[in-house]
Design a binder for these strands. Structure first.
Lengths: 144, 144
DNA sequence: CAGGTAATGTTATACAGTAACATCCGCGAT
DNA sequence: ATCGCGGATGTTACTGTATAACATTACCTG
């Protein structure tokens, strides 16, 4: 999916949730799209300041939170960062592997794993927050 | 496992790894044991300051990192916190469910899920970092 | 146009984590 | 015993991450 189609899909997703892909949100989403892997809020903030003169932390955090809330981005807790989700229109569950060394990200289908996971958590009456599961570790190019 | 036996097991684990459960580490471990769920580094720091007069962030972070490195504690990235691992002597993989509302924690066996997970990641040549998987969400008492 | 709602701007601050260097302490070798 | 080494801890200062609280704007709708 190229950037144009991706942004159009993002617009549709916002609209479907009663919101809008505002100029700021689009700009932030494009900035994150420009990185191959994990990007940090303060990096996006710096980019934003370069592009539009002024911006403060809440500006970028609000946009990132919004985009993550509807699945266009995923937050990678272990790295205090964000990644683009390229599957937000698909129904299948993605397993995200984020490399701590190179910052690269890979998304895999993991329906089987998710079935197993959700059965286990359901048995405990527990509802996981994240739609997608993010693991950190070492990718095949960065093995120790 | 009561506290005494737990601490003895922790000592053995440290020794087995060529280290020691020093006074500071024992104290930190006991403090974390005293909380029913997730506890934050700065909470432990405050407790430590109360108990021994002076302590700075590196003191508590070093102890927490050490304890987490060998599995006595787990870090919960999503909450910037730590929890006690009650299974560090067992071989089975634990799935940890941490409630974002009440801070409570539950540990489940999840060997099946882990098998599925590790097959999936292995196929991608990816080596996950954490021995144990921590999910955040809502426990059965805190459903929205 | 009035008034409400969502979004953004602004300031200040709280919370989380680490670098760098000093000091201490236990222990084995001389 | 003491020298010197390495692991652990103390101390200072700082960087990075995130949010509270309030002001302002933009836009829609009646």
């Amino acid at each position: 999916m190229d950037t144009q189609h991706y942004l159009q899909a993002a617009e549709r997703l916002c609209a479907a949730n009663g919101g809008k892909l505002t100029e700021l949100r689009r700009q932030v989403l494009e900035l994150v799209l420009g990185y191959p892997g994990v990007v940090k809020a303060y990096q996006v903030l710096a980019d934003l300041q370069r592009d539009r003169g002024a911006a403060a932390p809440p500006t970028v955090y609000r946009a990132l939170d919004y985009l993550a809330q509807y699945g266009m981005l995923h937050r990678v807790d272990a790295l205090n960062g964000y990644i683009v989700c390229h599957h937000f229109e698909c129904s299948h569950q993605a397993l995200i592997l984020a490399c701590e060394q190179c910052g690269g990200v890979e998304e895999l289908d993991a329906d089987a794993t998710f079935q197993s996971l959700s059965q286990t958590t359901a048995r405990a009456g527990f509802v996981p927050r994240a739609q997608s599961l993010v693991l950190t570790g070492s990718c095949k190019h960065c093995q120790p």
